[in-house]
Design a protein around this nucleic acid. Sequence first.
DNA 1: CCCATATCGTTGCAGTTGAAATGAAGTCAA
DNA 2: TTGACTTCATTTCAACTGCAACGATATGGG
Lengths: 143, 143
Amino acid sequence: MLDFDLSQFLPYQLAVVSERVSREFAAIYRARYGISRAEWRVLAHLSQAKAVSVRDISEQAELDKPKVSRAATRLEKAGYVTKKANETDKRLVSLALTDKGVALMEDMAPLARAYEAKVLDRLGTDAPTFLAAVQKLTQDNGA
Amino acid sequence: MLDFDLSQFLPYQLAVVSERVSREFAAIYRARYGISRAEWRVLAHLSQAKAVSVRDISEQAELDKPKVSRAATRLEKAGYVTKKANETDKRLVSLALTDKGVALMEDMAPLARAYEAKVLDRLGTDAPTFLAAVQKLTQDNGA
DNA sequence: CCCATATCGTTGCAGTTGAAATGAAGTCAA
DNA sequence: TTGACTTCATTTCAACTGCAACGATATGGG
């Protein structure tokens, strides 16, 4: 009909796969902990670094600033995260996990790894190359 | 800090990459044609098949039914798509591209291919394996 | 032929989203 | 030091989202 093969079109396939994977995984942690996708991403990010700003997370996790800000507010209310002004630059908000937040992530990590293993199993021997490729796309800023 | 390496966690990486790619590409067609992401996905789907139902698109494109329904309504108002009741099952809505819709997709196809090429370039020799892996994840229903 | 049940697409509604505006804080050149 | 400009996080507000409910249609057992 048209000279355009959707089943081979990368951005489309990527969106479908990513949505499916995110949806499946989100169902797991939402059912157990009542955490939204944005909240999960913020928590995951805070597991990597001691203290980061809203902007840091926004840039690296491909979430816009209001989304991060609101997720952080909800997580703070739930007791998983602390927000305090950065000492040297008071515009910045320092986000960090509380002990309760660390405990939550320690609890979720096995679920995350188990789900990931399930996905990687579907990929078989392509898994390492796939991960490497995703890394390339993540690191490049596409600028 | 925690025994959990986000930079290697597949669902997260996938979400970040997919969001970045979708955002970049969406900026192109939104600027030119005022088409939203959901609308683009519906149009792309209709480029593949003569007539499909809302449910078909919803399942295959990982979009929920209301989203497809509303995207279709907007596209109909814009003159890109027709909606008519299926003859044999009047519950079903047959969506199809109008001539104007076909013209739009023919116009967009080169943009899509150019953008895709840009992304694949970043992958280099990993591109074929990457595409194959994405296909595997798309086809598996994860059930 | 009925009636109970299932499926389709749309819509109502409460919650969420993102672009732009806001206000607070920082930077730098004159 | 001032004042113009930038950067950061939040808030505002209109639009969008997704779940659940709905009306319409279809199906299958009794």
